[in-house]
Amino acid sequence: MDPLLPRPVQDLGHYRLPSWWTPGAPRWRQALWLLVGLPLLASELPGTPWRQWLLRLFGAQIGAGGRLKPRLRVKCPWRLVVGDHCWLGEAVWIDNLASVTLGDRVCISQGAYLCTGNHDVRSPGFELKVAPILIDNDAWIAAQAMLAPGTQVGAGAVVALAAVASGLIEPGVIVAGHPALVVGRR
């Protein structure tokens, strides 16, 4: 234990989900998703139409057209809205404790991570914090990029390769780095 810290910084043994948070689906649907839906979605099997059907079956709103690649992971499909002609690349992880909304023609490249939940780093109770992610039309989230809870990506914006983005990304800009900073315009 660090002698400069007067008490434990985080007390994980006493962590509890906050009373205000709900998973957004009945337990049977959550269990069925974890046991059947998610393993199928995240499989190596090719094919977009059946993945779209599976996500819709569990409550996702999926637009027309698009591509859904193998190893796609979605924590709560009932909290996912995908516009028309979107591409979700291989090994994309949508960790959506809150809603994730994609506009039309959005590209989420391989290995990208969209995270809607985090913890309060200043709280010994490690309280859960969640905020939705919104990605507007024609935006591109490049390979291995990460979006923090509450991120809003404007229309036509690009979050570059392996960038870590949070907050408001203005329409039409290109952001790169960690933390993501504007490096140009599209």
Rank of each mutant, 00 (worst) to 15 (best):
V82P: 00
G13L: 10
V9R: 15
E44Y: 10
V175G: 01
G63A: 12
G83S: 06
M1Y: 05
D84H: 15
L38Y: 12
G24S: 11
A60E: 06
A64H: 09
A180D: 01
S43T: 00
A176G: 00
V92S: 04
L72M: 03
A155N: 07
A139C: 12
H14R: 15
G125P: 00
P77F: 06
N118C: 05
R122G: 14
P49S: 08
S109K: 00
L88G: 05
A64K: 14
D138C: 12
V81Y: 14
G47H: 06
G63L: 14
Q144D: 15
R185C: 08
D95P: 03
L38M: 11
V74E: 05
P46V: 02
G177R: 08
L80V: 01
Q110D: 09
W87P: 00
G47I: 01
L45F: 06
L38T: 06
L114V: 06
A91T: 06
R185E: 02
C107E: 07
P6G: 12
C76D: 04
L161V: 15
R186V: 00
P6R: 13
G177Q: 01
Y113F: 14
S19E: 15
A112W: 07
P39W: 06
G59N: 09
P39Q: 04
I133W: 13
V9P: 01
D138Y: 05
L97D: 13
L68G: 02
H14S: 13
R71N: 13
L114S: 05
R186S: 05
C107S: 11
V153R: 07
G89W: 05
G24Y: 05
H85R: 13
S123L: 09
P132Q: 06
C76E: 08
Q144R: 14
G111A: 08
T116H: 11
L161C: 09
L88C: 08
D138K: 09
D136R: 14
Y15L: 08
R29S: 13
A180N: 08
A165P: 00
A145W: 07
Q30C: 11
A139P: 01
A148N: 10
L114D: 03
G59A: 08
L168A: 13
G63K: 10
L88K: 10
L72S: 03
V81L: 07
V92Q: 03
V158P: 09
G83F: 08
G63S: 11
W28Q: 10
V100E: 13
A91N: 12
A163L: 09
A165M: 10
V74C: 13
C76R: 12
G111V: 04
G172L: 03
W87Y: 13
Q61T: 14
P70M: 03
V121W: 13
I141V: 09
P49L: 06
S109G: 00
R27T: 00
A163F: 07
N118F: 04
P124S: 11
R51C: 10
W20P: 00
L4R: 09
W33Y: 05
I141G: 08
